[in-house]
């Protein structure tokens, strides 16, 4: 089947749209996640979002909303800087990860449907996406890009040098909180579509590609976006063509792309 035909088939069109949209906002957010050295917080939030999703299925509530709820709570907690001297912030993020993954497994232990849902959440099922979901991620993606285009310079300043930004009177706490909240919104929307594994990869690997390929700060975002999109297309094509699961195919394509960029860059 050739690529144009893929675009024509409606379920594939939805998959393609969903992949492209989620990969672009996650790749963009990922640049900050990597630069702020909070990659681990990214994986923890996606785990917490999965927990919320499972909880929603068990309690017969809307899983999407429950997942949003738990991930927002996690985001608020992670956005606080604790002054705890005996252990690092990173280790609290680890605790959040361990807690949410073990609770998730405990919750699904008694329910076969929830267990299937949990597996779905890990790897996603991009080929089963409804048009409604595509609209949802499109809206969320729009929200994220509007926020970042409005506060572009403030976010960069605070991420780079929070002390000086605060000395200039910028409300760094508020921006930090908004940053984490948007990250949580993005991740919780993404995991129900492309799964926790792929969401997390989109948060890290395209940013690495961008940092490797581009020389300038603004270029990093563009390059990351482009790499996210290319690997989505490549992964989806491979998964369809060779009948492989989409999520892992996209992740592998993404990492292969990173390896190529890295290799080409170190030649020079």
């Amino acid at each position: 089947m050739d690529f144009l035909e893929i675009v024509k088939a409606s379920f594939l069109r939805n998959a393609l749209m969903a992949l492209l949209i989620t990969s672009s906002f996650l790749s963009y957010l990922g640049v900050y996640v990597v630069l702020k050295r909070i990659v681990f917080a990214g994986i923890a939030i996606s785990q917490i979002a999965s927990l919320g999703y499972v909880l929603g299925m068990l309690l017969k509530l809307n899983p999407q909303i429950c997942s949003l709820g738990t991930s927002l709570i996690g985001a608020v907690l992670f956005s606080f800087h604790t002054r705890e001297k005996r252990f690092s912030r990173e280790s609290m993020v680890g605790l959040g990860y361990a807690l949410s993954s073990s609770l998730g497994i405990l919750f699904v232990a008694k329910s076969a449907t929830a267990e299937a849902g949990m597996l779905n959440l890990l790897f996603g099922n991009v080929l089963m996406i409804s048009s409604g979901k595509v609209c949802l991620v499109a809206a969320i993606s729009l929200l994220i890009f509007i926020f970042y285009s409005l506060f572009n310079k403030e976010i960069a300043f605070i991420a780079f040098d929070e002390e000086t930004a605060r000395a200039q009177g910028l409300n760094a706490r508020l921006f930090e909180l908004l940053f984490y909240l948007l990250l949580a919104v993005g991740i919780s929307a993404a995991i129900s579509i492309i799964g926790a594994l792929l969401s997390f990869s989109f948060l890290t690997v395209p940013a690495l590609c961008g940092l490797c390929a581009a020389k300038r700060f603004s270029g990093v975002f563009k390059a990351a976006l482009l790499c996210g999109i290319i690997s989505s297309l490549l992964g989806l094509y491979l998964s369809y063509y060779c009948d492989l699961p989409t999520g892992p195919a996209v992740v592998t394509a993404n990492i292969a792309l990173f390896a190529v960029i890295f290799f080409l860059k170190s030649l020079r």
Binding site: L35, A156, F160, E163, T164, Q168, A214, K215
Partner: peptide, 14 residues
């Protein structure tokens, strides 16, 4: 304000 140089993260390609 000129903060202590070592509070600034060298990762950013600015």
């Amino acid at each position: 304000y000129v903060p202590q140089k070592d509070t600034i993260d060298p990762l950013f390609p600015l």
